[in-house]
């Protein structure tokens, strides 16, 4: 397997899985405006994932003579252990606070990552990052406002933010732990090592937590789990997600709009 393709697929899977989770709110948002907001963020993320999948599919097809792989093959015909997204992103939506916090954590991560990838020596990765970062900046803004609104809102909303942190915090450390494809990406200049983003990520998250009246967050190594989405070792949630997301292509292979 080509490690650089894995790296690109990891970027794609992150965007697709969170995009899919967000799309589950469509028609169920607490108020219409926010239902629309989350659906639009889902759309941005799925769009970004398509760009990365197309890139990976082209690369894999080139590397494997006689084999043509499409973006749909990658999104719809891989199983749980082949997905390379963070475990954080496949967690169930929970309540609004949990969905907001997950989005906030990931948007800040994605923003910092894209900022570095603008200088990627792999021109297509740089181009997708240049396109995506403008959308991600907006997601950071929106989700930060919500973290403050909930954290600094009512005792109930504050409590829910604390609960959401409790549930999601175990999955933070994975964002910063490099795996084989990160090393390859960094060595070739296509990508970066994620641990280089850690310090600024905590600064930015804590800056918002401060305005939200929430306790500050520190990196806890003890949070490290045996699960690693980047290595294909996922939580139980991903299987259920894929079952729904991939249903059509699995039941009716090759079907098209």
């Amino acid at each position: 397997m080509d490690l650089l393709s894995d790296y690109i697929i990891h970027l794609a899977d992150n965007a697709l899985i969170l995009g899919h989770r967000n799309s589950e709110w469509t028609g169920h948002g607490p108020i219409l405006e926010q239902d629309i907001a989350l659906s639009n963020i889902a759309l941005d993320l799925v769009g970004q994932s398509r760009n990365f999948y197309q890139l990976a599919a082209g690369r894999l097809s080139e590397l494997t003579p006689g084999l043509t792989i499409s973006e749909d093959d990658l999104a719809y015909l891989r199983d749980v252990n082949e997905f390379r997204n963070f475990v954080l992103l496949e967690q169930d939506n929970g309540d609004w606070a949990k969905t907001i916090l997950r989005q906030f954590y990931f948007s800040i991560y994605q923003y910092l990552l894209y900022k570095e990838l603008l200088a990627s020596k792999y021109p297509a990765i740089a181009a997708i990052s240049e396109k995506s970062i403008k959308e991600t900046r907006y997601h950071v803004k929106w989700s930060s406002e919500w973290v403050v609104r909930l954290g600094d809102g009512t005792p109930e909303s504050h409590r829910r933010m604390l609960d959401a942190r409790q549930e999601l915090n175990p999955w933070i450390s994975e964002l910063f732990i490099p795996v084989d494809f990160d090393y390859e990406a960094a060595a070739t200049g296509a990508g970066i090592l994620p641990d280089t983003l850690q310090e600024e990520w905590f600064q930015r998250v804590n800056h918002v937590f401060e305005s939200a009246g929430l306790p500050l967050l520190s990196f806890e190594k003890k949070n490290m789990h045996i699960l690693s989405g980047k290595k294909g070792v996922h939580s139980e949630h991903l299987g259920y997600l894929l079952e729904e997301m991939q249903f059509l292509q699995r039941a009716y292979p090759g079907s098209n709009w």
Binding site: Q34, I36, A37, N40, I41, L43, E135, W142, E145
Partner: peptide
């Protein structure tokens, strides 16, 4: 502003 997101990705309300 009512909402940062509107009827399509490119619009706010």
């Amino acid at each position: 502003m009512i909402s940062r997101f509107g009827s399509t990705a490119c619009k706010a309300l």
